[in-house]
Amino acid sequence: MIRVLVADDETIVRAGVRAILTTEPGIEVVAEAADGREAVELARRHRPDVALLDIRMPELDGLAAAGELRTTNPDTAVIVLTTFGEDRYIERALDQGVAGFLLKASDPRDLISGVHAVAAGGACLSPLVARRLMTELRRAPSPRSAASGERVAVLSGREREVLGMLGAGLSNAEIARRMHLVEGTIKAYVSAILHRLGVRNRVQAAIVAYEAGLVNDA
Rank of each mutant, 00 (worst) to 15 (best):
R44K: 15
R44I: 12
R44L: 13
R44N: 08
R45E: 14
H46T: 12
R47M: 10
R47Y: 03
R47V: 14
P48M: 13
P48G: 10
P48N: 12
P48L: 09
D49P: 10
D49G: 09
V50E: 07
A51T: 08
L52V: 05
L53Q: 04
L53T: 01
D54C: 02
D54I: 07
D54Y: 01
I55S: 04
I55D: 01
I55M: 04
M57D: 04
E59F: 06
E59Y: 09
L60E: 13
L60K: 15
L60C: 12
G62W: 03
L63A: 00
A64M: 11
A65W: 08
A66P: 06
A66E: 11
A66G: 13
A66Y: 08
G67F: 05
E68K: 14
T71E: 15
T71G: 12
T72E: 15
T72C: 14
T72P: 09
N73Y: 11
D75H: 15
A77Y: 03
V78K: 12
I79M: 06
I79R: 09
V80Q: 13
L81A: 00
T82D: 07
T82R: 08
T82E: 07
T83Q: 06
G85F: 05
D87H: 03
R88I: 05
I90D: 03
I90P: 00
I90H: 00
A93H: 06
A93K: 11
D95G: 15
D95V: 11
D95I: 10
G97N: 10
V98E: 06
A99Y: 03
G100A: 08
G100K: 03
G100P: 07
F101M: 00
F101Q: 00
F101T: 01
L102F: 05
L103Q: 04
L103H: 00
S106V: 09
D107E: 14
D107G: 06
P108V: 10
P108N: 08
